[in-house]
């Protein structure tokens, strides 16, 4: 595992990957346990950012810019997803009597 030089100090890449893993797990747990749809959306953003961090880390480590470019694209997609997701949420809560995501369970078999 090679070190990365960031702002004059040197850090092992595994620190960044560890942070990404922690953020991803936090996001996953948030999606799983929270009922507020807004928080779930934020948790999804967290997972996306964790993935971005991992992408950038590997890109830097492998001296390959594709990973950084892909992180930029994934941010664009995340922004679009947030816009669409929020629009849907606003519409659902305006037209329906629902307090949280568990109230939206009509599709159960």
């Amino acid at each position: 595992m090679s070190n990365l030089v960031i702002g004059g100090s040197t850090l092992d890449a595994s620190w960044f990957l560890g942070l990404a893993a922690i953020l991803f797990v936090l996001g996953t747990v948030g999606v799983l346990v929270r009922r507020n749809p807004l928080v779930i959306l934020i948790s999804i953003e967290l997972m996306l950012n964790a993935a971005n961090l991992a992408l950038v880390t590997f890109s830097r480590q492998l001296q390959n810019y594709e990973g950084q470019l892909f992180a930029l694209m994934s941010m664009t997609v995340a922004a679009a997803e947030a816009v669409v997701g929020l629009a849907i949420l606003v519409d659902i809560f305006r037209t329906r009597d629902a307090e949280d995501i568990d109230d939206l369970s009509e599709l159960k078999g």
């Binding site: 346990v33 369970s105 599709l107 078999g109």
Partner: peptide, 21 residues
């Protein structure tokens, strides 16, 4: 068959996410 399989479809978002994860 449908009655048996429909147990898996709880309608709760988090169940689906859990299976996915």
């Amino acid at each position: 068959g449908a009655a048996g399989l429909s147990v898996t479809q709880s309608g709760y978002f988090r169940n689906y996410v859990l299976v996915f994860v």
